[in-house]
């Protein structure tokens, strides 16, 4: 099945990401195995389909397979070209919003939080490896599901997406990420300072989370990582002077 030939191409969907067509060329490249059946029937339509597939598109790369397969299905069914273009525009927003919530603000921080809790508990690199393996297993399964889903529904993929349980999963994964992220802060402090550091990790977590709550409105405008670099620089110069 050519859907399996598409999946590896989805893994490098953003290899040529740019501000002009964003993921467009990647989507076109991923679509090629699915569009080949069209090439056998109608060369002219095939080239127009390839040109369309490489046009502007942007969504979450983990759910972009839904669009790749649905659009290719519509092309192979020789649907009206204006309708295919409208579907392409209509899919980008929802697949971006759902995918970003599900993966970037959900599964990724959740997996990293599990890894940090594991490090804090002294499980070492095994916890990190486990988190990476589980995340990637979910990603492979969801990627193949997305391709099948898009191919099955073609032009009707929009309403099928709205009726799917993706929204519920997004909420569940988001809650899990928030829960694990909250817990990970304390274990991260223990992981960095070490198991023999007594109450220091606890004190640091309480002070910093308290500070984040108190100064939250002003803090948003400052780059915290750059502020950290500046403070380290000042402390280094001060300590160096006292050597």
């Amino acid at each position: 099945m050519s859907l399996f030939a598409v999946f590896p191409r989805l893994l490098v969907l953003q290899a040529s990401w740019n501000h002009d067509v964003m993921q467009g060329v990647g989507v076109g490249f991923a679509s090629l195995p699915l569009l080949r059946t069209l090439a056998d029937r109608d060369q002219e339509r095939y080239h127009r389909a390839v040109a369309r597939a490489g046009g502007f598109f942007n969504a979450n790369p983990n759910l972009a397979g839904v669009a790749v397969a649905a659009l290719a299905r519509a092309e192979c069914a020789e649907a009206p070209e204006s309708q295919i273009q409208r579907l392409r525009v209509a899919l980008a927003g929802p697949l971006g919003a759902i995918g970003d919530q599900l993966f970037w603000a959900g599964l990724v921080p959740a997996a990293m939080a599990v890894g940090m809790v594991g490090v804090g508990l002294g499980w070492g690199g095994g916890a990190v490896l486990g988190a990476v393996l589980v995340y990637n297993a979910i990603r492979v399964v969801s990627g193949i599901w997305g391709l099948r889903f898009g191919w099955r529904h073609g032009l009707g993929v929009g309403s099928a997406l709205a009726a799917s349980s993706l929204g519920q999963w997004t909420a569940r994964v988001g809650a899990a990420a928030a829960l694990l992220g909250g817990a990970a802060l304390s274990f991260a402090a223990r992981g960095v300072l070490g198991p023999g550091s007594g109450v220091w990790p606890l004190a640091l977590v309480l002070v910093m989370v308290g500070l984040a709550i108190v100064v939250r409105s002003a803090w948003w405008r400052i780059s915290p990582s750059m502020l950290t670099v500046v403070v380290v620089l000042v402390v280094t110069l001060w300590r160096w002077g006292t050597v």
Partner: peptide, 27 residues
């Protein structure tokens, strides 16, 4: 300086503040 635990504490503090901010924002 290489053994100064304050330097590590500063970066950890900055990291905890940053992570709390990020998790707060996404939550």
């Amino acid at each position: 300086l290489r053994e100064d635990a304050v330097l590590r504490g500063v970066v950890l503090g900055g990291g905890l503040l940053t992570a709390a901010r990020g998790l707060w924002r996404t939550s």
